[in-house]
Write a protein that binds this DNA or RNA. Structure first.
Lengths: 339, 339
DNA sequence: CTGTTAGCGCCTTCAC
DNA sequence: GTGAAGGCGCTAACAG
């Protein structure tokens, strides 16, 4: 039997069709035995609720939007490297996992400016939204002010108190990196970063790293964003590395680490042998490098899976009475051979 | 007025609601003046048909699936490099462009084996499907046999005659690469590749490249897939490069080019200065490299935009009477400074 | 907790 | 070429 028919399920389970519906939308309001009966019948008949009909009746769109905001101001973060593309597939997988067996569907949306948030008729497009890669206060504020459907923002959003959010924890990530170096016997690290006052996550990563080395002060070398900064920062440390006054480098992200690696290479120094090296973001660079870079993975899949769950909760509850909720996903160490 | 109400539009246009509906679904069956009246009224009222209701009534799902097949057998193609991730965002953008203003919505689906194609109840999930990154005959055949909704396969599919497909043209891409070298004054190239008998696209790329150099025979150096193969192949050519008997290298893809580049670097040879170098796929490696690699971009966005259009056509027509259609998207040269 | 009932907005015969 | 009318599968009151 292939045909989706709720009434057949109801009949087989010996309940009314409304109860079948409840099992999918308000499972808490159905007694255990009936719920089981319905679920069994549904499985037997290969039934699953029709999302279009559900959306129609509910007077919603049946859609959840994943919203990306294109922003020129991001240049300082990554240079012109399209980092977002690497994450995106993981992000989608995480979201799909949970959206797939909800009554909703995923829909992808790209905004070209923050102003668009206010001018869109959200209710017409979707019943809820996840905002991708929100970093700045300004962005969070625009969402709160302009998005008229339930929304959760992700993923560098731990400090935005005024809205629902799901974040990575850059401090912990930095700490994990530092602790890993310690575990491996490194004791005199330096940290290479940029714009910590402007880019909060960079500051947090350093703070965490420093936190792991609580007994000493970790020097932070600042340069310009990206590989050029990494190269020059490393260059300035070469003599200290050679003399053993620095035995390891923490780097704020993989992209910057590329410059670090190029410099080390130019100097004939090999990560993992001559110096410990740990970076952040776990970009798929290992194939390109002559060794495997140890890095911190912020787990975009888990992050957005969590965000999706939050959103679904939010959409299910009364939206007006939204008490702000925040969830955190802890980053993970990915071991290579550079430490 | 925000509320979508077809009857209001009908009233304003002085027609029945059925006519409004026809304007969106069978525009040919409505007379010009009335059609215009409806469209004007719709614009004025901000009306657009409700996709959920439409899908419900039509007894379809209102969904178009983008299907990715996870395949372990792909290892020879890319090693363990997650190339797919790179393309995916472009692919999605291309598809979204066209799906967005259709009556359908996009839905992402991942299969873990070819067998799944036959066991899925397609009609329950979607009204049409695009199969992502189909390369092997076996895959194409599985789609034809097992997918019960209209489907188009993409993007290395030019030779699969039994189903709807939208392909890149690897031969032309190779030719473009070769011609570019010629234009720049290179005359004695070699080509670095692997498994041309197993991986059709690799063979086609070489054939095209050779085609551009019709007056000479381009030596093809074969090795193992990926950077190791690239490294070793280049190594074997070093003396010929040094003596000027080879003045340029065509490489089957960027990933392999990484090995080539590492070897050249180890030998103190600089692409663009000591030798011409052109690769394929336009992966975002430039940031990682100390120069900009000239490469061929197969334009995944255009490719899948085309595929989407084809699918929509297919879904609109009578599916049984499907005469096979095939479309081709020509790759593009992306100039760096390695040539 | 559970069943009954009234549409949600649209597409599609079927008449005209 | 056009209008009238039924019903797609579901959810949200409401009444028990």
């Amino acid at each position: 039997m292939t045909k989706n028919n709720r009434d057949k399920v109801a009949e087989l389970a010996g309940v009314s069709s409304a109860t079948v519906s409840r099992v999918y939308n308000n499972p808490d309001k159905v007694s255990q035995p009936r719920k089981k009966a319905v679920l069994d019948a549904a499985k037997l008949l290969g039934y699953s609720p029709d999302k279009s009909a559900s959306a129609l009746r509910r007077k919603g769109t049946g859609q959840i939007s994943l919203v990306s905001i294109k922003k020129k101001k991001r240049t300082p973060y990554w240079g012109d490297f399209p980092t977002a593309k690497w994450f995106y597939t993981d992000v989608l997988n995480g979201i799909m996992d949970v959206v797939e067996d909800s009554m909703y569907r995923l829909n992808l949306k790209t905004l070209h400016s923050l102003d668009e948030i206010a001018s869109i008729n959200w209710k017409q497009d979707c019943d809820g939204a996840i905002f991708y890669d929100v970093v700045e206060q300004e962005e969070a504020a625009a969402v709160v002010a302009g998005c008229s459907v339930p929304a959760v923002i992700s993923h560098n959003t731990s400090v935005f108190t005024e809205c629902m959010r799901c974040s990575t924890n850059n401090y912990q990530g930095g700490e994990i990196a530092g602790r890993h170096l310690l575990d491996k016997g490194y004791e005199k690290p330096a940290y290479i970063s940029y714009l910590p006052e402007m880019i909060r996550s960079n500051k947090e990563r350093y703070d965490g790293f420093q936190g792991a080395f609580s007994h000493i002060e970790v020097p932070q070398i600042l340069g310009e964003p990206g590989k050029k900064g990494g190269y020059e920062a490393t260059k300035s440390l070469i003599s200290e590395i050679r003399t053993g006054r620095i035995d390891a480098l923490g780097v704020v992200n993989d992209l910057t680490a590329i410059g670090v690696i190029q410099c080390l290479q130019d100097e004939g120094l090999k990560p993992g042998r001559d110096i410990g090296l740990i970076a952040y973001d776990n970009m798929p660079l290992n194939y390109v490098l002559p060794f495997n870079l140890t890095s911190i993975d912020l787990r975009p899949d888990l992050l957005y899976r969590e965000a999706s769950c939050m959103l679904l909760d939010l959409m299910h509850s009364d939206y007006d009475s939204h008490k702000i909720v925040s969830r955190i996903v802890i980053p993970e160490l990915v071991e290579g051979d550079s430490v």
